[in-house]
Simulated scan of single mutants.
Amino acid sequence: MAGVQTAGVIDVHAHVVLAETFGAAGTLGPEMGGQDGDAPWFRVGEYRLDGVRYAGSAFMDPALRLARMATAGIDFQVLSPNPLTYLHHVPAAVAIRFCRIHNDALACQVAAYPERLAGLAALPMQDIGAAVEEFHRAVGDLGLWGAAIGTDMPHRLDDAGMDRLYDACVSRDVPLFLHPGPAGIDGPAGDPNLKDYDLDVVIGFAAQETLAVARLIFGGVLDRHPALDICLSHGGGSTAFLAGRMAQAMRKRPWSPPDHRKDGAFEERLARLWFDNHLNRAESLSLLTDLVGEDRLVFGTNFAGWDAPEDLGTHTPPAHLADNARRLLRRP
């Protein structure tokens, strides 16, 4: 516990790949190959990621992770599921088994390095009852610090059925993290325009995050759960750029209830969400900060990922971001 309490830099956006989960979803995998050559690959169902090496990398080797964290000046890291393995659209029994294996393995890994690492649970979101059950097991029994789920699942974030999970987060007093996964891994294929140039990740992720913000606010999730803390990846996607348009819609459109139509109602709710600062451009972060304030931002890197900041070893994030992370994580 002392590690996070005294950490000067806390990274809340860092994914982990766990060897114990390979083959845990049956024919869907996951599996990987080519890791010893020049063409590594990773497969989940019909989706194949090429050119990313997991074996012998910080994604899978905690010793390498800790060494790279030291080089990057990161004191503490919160590990979340690989977004390629959310499996929110597969048969519930497959997802339930996979998430249990994942969370057991993650809990073992972070327990070995409590001064440097913590973990967020994977949940079988196609069955909300099972997701709530696994959430309580992962947080209550395994000691994980919350959960991380995708933004694309069989039901929407503002679906009334999701209230059971939101209530569970409040009752356990832990945050919920949202991060997109590429459309089509185990569910609907998504926009075919996103299938080239990594657009499903570069633009599709931002679209999913922006949609998540809109549904959480327009759909009344924050009104129904005032004590709920949700943190969105990549600065909420395009939220900062589109906030004016979303606010105008909430004031003007017929679906908006009376209490949402008041001036500032959208902005007030937006400032109750949390965002990591992983936006890759200072001007974009400045726009988001102007909207939500300094106290709702946390430091995130997508550690070891293709879009991780290149200057981690030479740039120290502001100290207040670590204080914010401690508040979000309930580790004062």
Score class of each variant (00 low, 15 high):
228 L>A: 12
279 L>K: 00
325 A>K: 07
46 E>W: 03
18 L>A: 07
282 A>Q: 14
261 R>P: 11
56 G>N: 05
154 P>C: 10
1 M>K: 03
218 F>Q: 10
84 L>E: 02
105 A>W: 04
305 G>D: 09
3 G>T: 03
29 G>Y: 09
330 R>S: 11
246 M>Q: 06
189 A>K: 07
220 G>N: 12
90 V>W: 02
22 F>E: 15
88 H>E: 10
133 E>P: 02
86 Y>L: 11
230 I>L: 04
306 W>Y: 10
68 R>I: 03
204 G>Y: 08
269 R>P: 01
106 L>D: 02
147 A>E: 08
257 P>H: 15
69 M>E: 11
38 D>N: 13
117 L>F: 03
178 L>M: 09
51 G>C: 06
215 R>E: 15
98 F>Q: 05
258 P>R: 15
293 G>T: 04
298 V>W: 00
85 T>V: 13
30 P>Q: 07
138 A>W: 01
153 M>F: 13
302 N>M: 06
161 G>D: 14
109 Q>L: 15
4 V>Y: 04
20 E>C: 03
34 G>V: 03
207 A>Q: 05
230 I>Y: 01
316 T>C: 05
240 A>D: 02
206 A>D: 08
47 Y>C: 05
53 R>Q: 13
318 P>F: 06
286 S>G: 10
121 A>G: 00
276 D>L: 07
71 T>V: 11
308 A>D: 12
5 Q>M: 07
214 A>P: 01
95 A>S: 15
301 T>F: 14
286 S>R: 11
325 A>F: 09
295 D>Q: 11
331 R>P: 01
66 L>D: 04
223 D>K: 13
35 Q>R: 06
207 A>Y: 08
92 A>T: 14
22 F>R: 12
210 T>C: 03
230 I>D: 02
219 G>S: 14
87 L>W: 09
44 V>H: 05
281 R>N: 15
28 L>Y: 14
287 L>R: 07
311 D>S: 12
115 E>G: 02
288 L>S: 04
184 G>P: 05
64 L>K: 15
2 A>N: 04
83 P>S: 09
325 A>I: 10
217 I>C: 01
17 V>C: 06
78 V>A: 10
96 I>K: 12
330 R>D: 09
20 E>Q: 13
190 G>W: 07
234 H>G: 09
201 V>K: 01
154 P>K: 13
275 F>E: 02
219 G>L: 12
162 M>R: 15
139 V>S: 06
99 C>E: 06
44 V>W: 09
224 R>C: 10
119 G>M: 08
311 D>V: 05
75 D>N: 08
58 A>P: 05
290 D>L: 04
251 R>V: 03
40 P>S: 05
228 L>S: 11
213 V>T: 08
287 L>D: 03
83 P>K: 01
175 P>H: 06
324 N>L: 08
158 D>K: 11
90 V>P: 00
23 G>W: 06
209 E>G: 02
33 G>S: 06
34 G>S: 02
83 P>Q: 01
304 A>S: 13
297 L>I: 14
156 R>F: 10
196 D>Y: 03
51 G>V: 09
98 F>G: 08
171 S>C: 05
239 T>I: 11
112 A>E: 14
89 H>S: 10
306 W>K: 15
58 A>V: 08
